[in-house]
């Protein structure tokens, strides 16, 4: 059994690490997979992101704060992995091989997203999948709003054709 995180907050009920893990694992894994492009590395990155939570013993002000912290940590963990590893990521052109290893269906859209530069991936995921505004993304990633808008514009250009028929 995994013991509760140290409770230091006053107004929020204590939530165990396991509860937080089960609630957000899919989200964290999804982000890590989009960065790492293969299941094995995504598992390691996701594990490290949650390990930081476990070691940190953080108590969150709200459910949104908890989610934002995990997203940011997962993204930063992946970026650290990609910066420091002396290896090349799986060539996304071999996504068929990737698909059989991961057992996920990787369509053209996901392939295109996974080919984006790292700084664009987070914005695309948060904007189009999680539904955050650019201002919220700026707060979450602790970057200037103008930078986020620029990255979004850049990502849209790169994904031209894929993102046709956006929802109004």
């Amino acid at each position: 059994m995994i013991e509760p995180l140290p409770a230091r907050g006053e107004d929020r009920p204590e939530k165990s690490f396991e509860e937080i893990y089960r609630q957000h694992f899919a989200m964290v894994y999804r982000v890590c997979f989009s960065y790492m492009k293969n299941a094995a590395d995504a598992e390691d990155a996701a594990a490290d992101a949650f390990l930081k939570l476990l070691k940190n013993g953080r108590v969150f002000q709200s459910a949104e704060h908890e989610k934002a912290w995990l997203l940011r940590t997962a993204i930063n963990t992946c970026k650290d992995y990609l910066k420091h590893w002396r290896r090349s990521c799986a060539d996304i052109a071999d996504y068929e091989n990737l698909q059989s290893a991961s057992s996920f269906h990787i369509d053209e859209t996901l392939k295109a997203v996974m080919e984006l530069p790292a700084h664009c991936k987070a914005v695309i995921y948060l904007y189009y999948y999680e539904g955050y505004t650019t201002e919220e993304i700026a707060g979450l990633l602790k970057k200037p709003h103008a930078t986020i808008r620029y990255h979004l514009r850049e990502a849209r250009n790169l994904l031209r054709g894929v993102l046709e028929n956006e929802e109004p």
């Binding site: 995994i2 396991e18 893990y21 089960r22 694992f25 899919a26 894994y29 999804r30 997979f33 989009s34 299941a39 598992e43 390691d44 996701a46 594990a47 490290d48 949650f50 390990l51 476990l54 996920f104 269906h105 990787i106 369509d107 859209t109 996901l110 997203v113 695309i124 995921y125 904007y127 189009y128 999948y129 539904g131 894929v162 993102l163 028929n165 956006e166 929802e167």
Partner: peptide, 30 residues
């Protein structure tokens, strides 16, 4: 602003319970 294609694409990355348990085990081992 959500986009259906992107949502569908990311929704395909759906870790199963075995994967979830495996990663949890990794965390505890680390």
């Amino acid at each position: 602003m959500k986009n259906r294609k992107i949502i569908r694409a990311f929704d395909a990355i759906q870790p199963d319970k075995a994967l979830e348990a495996r990663v949890l085990n990794k965390i505890l081992q680390k």
